[in-house]
Design a protein around this nucleic acid. Structure first.
Length: 201
DNA sequence: GCTTAGATACGCT
DNA sequence: GCGTATCTAAGCT
């Protein structure tokens, strides 16, 4: 699919990613899901971002690549995945935080060691889809093991505060987290489940 | 079902 | 050493 929507504005790109389908092939096994939850991280001026004030380290180097790059990092023994937006001068990206599983559900269950809550959190979805830093970090969408394609369209999009970024002063209040309203495959929130999981018909 | 505490390990300094 | 854009299980209701 055409990825140029990732080039312009990160907040718009974040919302546009909701409903898109992610497909991974790890160890020859296919898994896929629709994106239900994302967060935007706006580089230089965002105190919660890894690249705040142009901070550049080995870890966040991939944030300084152009749109369509995959950035994976580890924390607390888990992996988190971002899709980079914009260009080399704008270290911005979108953290993928939730997926509604579609294909390879049995594999996802095996990788997670449980039957549900397979991808309703950033560490959970990387685990169930086999996304590891050593394989995926620095790859590009649709040119490597990860494919982005059209999927569903959200009925309505809900904006909220980002998760897990206490101690980041005013940045904690930015409404840079976006979820598909009524979809249960999201972290934290208590969701009143909607018809069709909140997707347009 | 909800809230909380503690485990966790990796990359970077 | 230390900080971390997390997860799980326990304990309660």
């Amino acid at each position: 699919m055409d990825l140029s929507f990732l080039e312009k504005d990160t907040l718009t790109a974040a919302k546009a990613l909701l409903g898109k389908k992610i497909t991974t092939v790890t160890d020859g096994i296919v898994t896929s899901g629709y994106i239900t939850e994302v967060e935007a991280y706006l580089g230089l001026e965002d105190k919660a971002a890894h690249a705040y004030q142009g901070r550049r380290t080995k870890k966040n180097e991939m944030m300084y690549r152009s749109y369509g790059t995959v950035y994976v990092y580890t924390m607390h023994g888990h992996h988190c995945m971002n899709f980079i937006t914009k260009d080399e001068c704008s270290p911005e990206g979108v953290l993928i935080r939730g997926l509604e599983p579609v294909e390879g559900i049995e594999v996802m269950q095996a990788r997670r060691g449980r039957l549900d809550h397979l991808a309703d959190g950033p560490g959970k979805l990387t685990q169930s889809m086999g996304i590891r830093r050593d394989i995926y970090n620095g790859t590009r969408l649709n040119e490597g093991p990860l494919t982005l394609s059209e999927g569903k369209v959200p009925g309505s999009i809900k904006a909220s505060k980002r998760i897990g970024i206490d101690n980041k002063e005013e940045a904690v209040d930015y409404l840079y987290r976006f979820t598909v309203e009524g979809n249960p495959h999201v972290s934290k929130d208590r969701v009143e489940k909607a018809e069709f999981n909140g997707w347009q018909q």
